[in-house]
Design a binder for these strands. Structure first.
Length: 403
DNA sequence: TCTGGGGTCCTAGGACCC
DNA sequence: TCTGGGGTCCTAGGACCC
């Protein structure tokens, strides 16, 4: 089998877009965001600045760091255009996020040349047409292609020849593997496993004892480059959620009620726009000490109505707070809706009643927003504009396309 | 290094059914 | 009164990814 899987990944995407838009920022350490670093340029990463980090910490690591507020619409547009360039060569494209996609070019090499040639063309076009650096990995499997693009960064191309796959793979650190994060890495380090080759040498049983059966089995297979995953052009959303960091607020109804309504509103709008609804509603409450508790309920009938979602969530939050009476402050609230299903005939067979009225009210709000914008009507963002909050535009970028 | 917001998948225990 | 085994679903928590 040939190496026909490409993994294309825009480098330090948000930061690169900012440097593209403002040439004065090129070559300088910059961070998108303010209170929180949403993205960092390579120059900033060299100082240890990472996304997710608080702005204060980032500034400590890199005093000359330049903060810029994001051009979120540009991220969406340029991300779409980059993926479009990949799609010019094959319909088998699996978009992973705004700035990253897999592609299988097996069926189009007769038109465009060998995979490595296609990868070079994509990189050249993204550079000349969009002005952005993109790294590409080419290999026989998705996992290896993804690792290859990481190794290729920044602004590089790595092609893994099928005859030397294991030579390439086995010297690399385990942290490059899909599914190995800080916890797994630490557990492996305890048994002196640091490279993928060392992982491959571990007996399957001890690996499964260390990491659990699913993870152990998966990593064992990946370490020998056995990756059964195929390119999925369509993926089905399994949940939709929203969360808000509150800074630190009293655990009182006047705080959590409007916050939950706002979150329920965000989720409800997205679900209804796709005719989706979900049977399970989960909430998450994080206390002052960052300990988080989740509660969920599952119903026979699916839900997508804002006010129903909000009321269920509020009930769950109240139950949590009653269970932890000593926790007087909360730092985060979240709602998730899962067990999603497409609504075929939403209200048709429901008896007339309050839920129908509520659904109608939601659709009216949805319509008004389509016409006049999201801010024109709805639940105020009362508590949500406090310290830790992030622009709505950024949230929208993070949302997965619901099918 | 105490950190935002969007997700996916896995595990372990318990309820319940056959 | 004590006892099996398999399967499915739900819940709570956690690891991981971008």
């Amino acid at each position: 089998m040939d190496a026909t899987i490409l993994h294309a990944d825009l480098d330090a995407f948000y930061a690169s877009v900012e440097q593209l838009l403002a040439p004065a920022l090129r070559g300088k350490p910059i961070a998108v965001g303010g209170g929180v670093v949403l993205a960092a340029s390579y120059e900033a990463k060299a100082f240890g600045v990472q996304s997710g980090m608080s702005g204060r910490n980032a500034r400590q690591l890199c005093p000359q760091l330049i903060f810029v507020s994001g051009h979120f619409n540009e991220y969406q547009r340029l991300g779409d255009e980059a993926i479009q360039i990949v799609s010019d060569y094959t319909p088998l494209v699996e978009r992973i996020s705004i700035d990253e996609a897999f592609a299988d070019v097996a069926g189009c090499t007769h038109l465009f040349g060998p995979p490595a040639e296609i990868a070079r063309t994509i990189r050249r076009r993204v550079r000349t047409e969009l002005g952005l650096p993109i790294s590409v990995g080419v290999a026989r499997t998705k996992h290896l292609a993804k690792i290859a693009s990481q190794v290729a960064k920044p602004d590089g191309l790595v092609v893994v020849d099928p005859v030397s796959e294991l030579d390439f793979l086995h010297d690399l650190p385990v942290g490059l593997m899909w599914g190995v994060g800080p916890v797994t890495q630490a557990r492996l380090a305890e048994v002196e496993v640091r490279t993928i080759g060392q992982l491959a040498q571990m007996p399957g049983q001890s690996l499964e004892r260390l990491l659990g059966s699913a993870a152990g089995e998966k990593l064992a297979a990946l370490s020998w480059n056995r990756d059964p995953r195929e390119i999925k052009t369509q993926r089905r959303a399994r949940s939709a959620g929203a969360q808000a960091a509150l800074g630190l607020e009293p655990a009182e109804q006047r705080i959590y009620r409007p916050a939950l309504r706002h979150l329920a509103d965000r989720i409800g709008t997205r679900l209804r726009a796709r005719s989706l609804s979900g049977r399970t509603v989960s909430i998450r409450v994080r206390f002052a000490n960052l300990r988080a508790v989740t509660r969920s309920v599952t119903f026979d009938t699916p839900i997508a109505t804002t006010i129903v979602l909000a009321e269920i969530a509020e009930g769950l939050v109240r139950a949590v707070l009653a269970q932890y009476p000593r926790e007087r402050k909360i730092s985060l609230l979240a709602i998730q809706v899962s067990h999603l299903a497409k609504d075929e005939s939403v209200q048709l067979d429901l008896p007339l009643g309050s839920s129908v009225m509520r659904g109608a009210a939601d659709r009216a709000v949805d319509t008004i927003r389509e016409r006049f914008g999201r801010e024109s009507i709805g639940y105020g963002s009362v508590v949500l504009n406090s310290r830790g909050s992030v622009p709505d535009a950024f949230r929208e970028l993070a949302e997965q396309e619901l099918p």
